[in-house]
Design a protein around this nucleic acid. Structure first.
Lengths: 312, 312
DNA sequence: ATGAAAGCGCTAACAT
DNA sequence: ATGTTAGCGCTTTCAT
């Protein structure tokens, strides 16, 4: 592989002049430019990125930490990130965390080693204080409200949409509501927000027996319906964390000659459109785009969107 | 940020000794090791990856070229790749190509610049000869039968499963079959394989009017059913390129009081399990794992699997 | 077991 | 406009 020195020697110019034409800088005569470019073409030369990165002190990689990639939340967010990254010259590195703190910590250490220019946490198990601590080594963006922590963030304010959704169900005079949620943790922000909104509207806590977490797919919804119906045969209303999950619930009802239930989806997947059910749009794609934007910035930013309750 | 020289100075040892303890090499006295590690901890030092990569002549990034990420084919393949990469110390860089040759060419050039150690093409628009040409700059793995081309490859032999599927439909004495396929190109390998198998079993070409390409999702299946039923109201059998697509078709039939059709899915998504329909497992996850393995190897390998027709 | 020094290939400050 | 050279921070050969 020829190096910049080879080009310099063969063209009769110096390395700095070659470097100048490579980087399209000023102060290069047409003659020099032409001669050098000829040699470059002749020797089939391309500059070495590793050397360039070392010299520049950083590479063009943005790490994206995500626990797994089979939930629309991560898919849509990632698509937004990719979309924004596409024409930027930056690369997206996929960093699976599996909700493991040690793994997350390792990625932070890699940021310190300059393996990435910035890190986007689509979700995190580590305390925000830890993330904050690493911001001195590179930009870090998280996807939730960082509260007091000095971390760049993009997130959607979910409460209003949740309130609207429960209000809608209240107006339908439903008796019981199955709550299908994402994480299994009662302390997760989503869980808290949903139960909070529920209480505000119905003036009581949701029935623990009708709550299930860990929902990711159509299949999960199907099985959840099975479980909940066993506990409460008359159940015919579900608030779910995804359109596909709702579709699974619906399928279970259909398959077992139960009346089609009242459903609320989330993520605004196209299935909600087809099944004509209400959904909640958290604007994850847009969030992803914004997250990437913040990752490139070196200032602190917080960017809040508003989730939207959508009736068919 | 402290460098290896700082550690050397402060510990009283030389740079090379420090390097030895960093890389856990032999020939370091316990005293030296201890002293050096103390200083490392004290100064909160970590080695710089950029410098390391330059010195080593390559980084630990594997680029994965994929046209888009909303088809289970790519998702499952990617999951397999990620799974294999997870504990390897290598990173997966997502390289969206959008079926664009110029973009693909650019990724190949980046391989040449040593921006990646290897490249996996889950799909490619560029001729295989071009990919082959770039193998001198790093390992390249493609996900189809490379034929005469000297490129490492993983793929699944689809024909037997297609034959089995059509045989199954024949045994059911279906009159017409809607064919829902992936790409819109009549020359794509899949298209050729499917129509070939069809002809072998039914001794005639499939009806062009009942073929639709570009299927990616539940929604696509739903709309395709709509179109095909308009052309052929009695249609009640579909061979599809995905379980979700089949699910969409089924939904259309249900929503329009049409009898539930005979369906064959693909990709062995869980929906086929729930909907109790036959499917074809191309083992994409396994393929992905293998693709990553080959990416790390510097020899030429080809690895063929066998697709599997699965009856519920 | 330890150290000195020569790269790795490029950028950029400085000199001419 | 062009050239010289000192880094960037690490690994590795070759001495000792």
């Amino acid at each position: 592989m020829p190096t910049i020195r080879d080009i310099a020697r063969k063209s009769g110019y110096s390395v700095s002049t070659v470097s100048r034409v490579l980087n399209q800088q000023k102060y290069v005569s047409d003659a020099a430019k032409e001669a050098i470019e000829a040699v470059i073409k002749q020797l089939d030369y391309v500059p070495n990125s590793l050397a360039r990165d070392l010299s520049f002190g950083q590479n063009k990689n943005i790490g994206v930490v995500l626990p797994h990639n089979d939930h629309p939340y991560f898919n849509q967010l990632l698509n937004g990130i990719m979309d924004a990254a596409f024409s930027s010259g930056y690369h997206i590195v996929l960093l699976p965390s599996e909700y493991n703190r040690t793994v997350e910590r390792d990625y932070l250490e890699q940021l310190k080693r300059k393996n990435f220019t910035a890190l986007i946490f689509t979700s995190h198990e580590l305390p925000l204080a830890v993330l904050e601590d690493y911001t001195r080594y590179g930009q870090i963006v998280c996807c939730e409200n960082p509260g007091q922590h000095h971390i760049s963030a993009v997130y959607s304010n979910r409460e209003p949409a949740y309130l609207a959704a429960f209000n809608y169900l209240k107006s339908l005079e439903v008796q019981q509501i199955g709550l299908l949620l994402s994480r299994n943790l009662a302390k997760s922000p989503t869980w808290v927000a949903v139960t909070g909104a529920y209480q505000q509207i119905f003036h009581q806590k949701p029935d623990q027996q009708l709550m299930i977490g860990g929902m990711r797919s159509f299949e999960d919804g199907y099985r959840a319906a099975e479980q909940l119906i066993a506990r409460q045969p008359a159940l015919n209303c579900y608030f779910t964390n995804g359109d596909d999950i709702a579709a699974g619930v619906r399928q279970y009802h259909l398959d077992h000659q139960l009346p089609v239930p009242i459903l609320i989806g989330q993520e605004k997947q196209l299935s909600s459109l087809l099944l004509k059910m209400p959904t909640i749009d958290h604007h994850f794609f847009t969030l992803g785009q914004k997250a990437f934007e913040l990752a490139l910035s070196n200032q602190h930013h917080e960017c809040a969107f508003e989730s939207e309750f959508i009736r068919p």
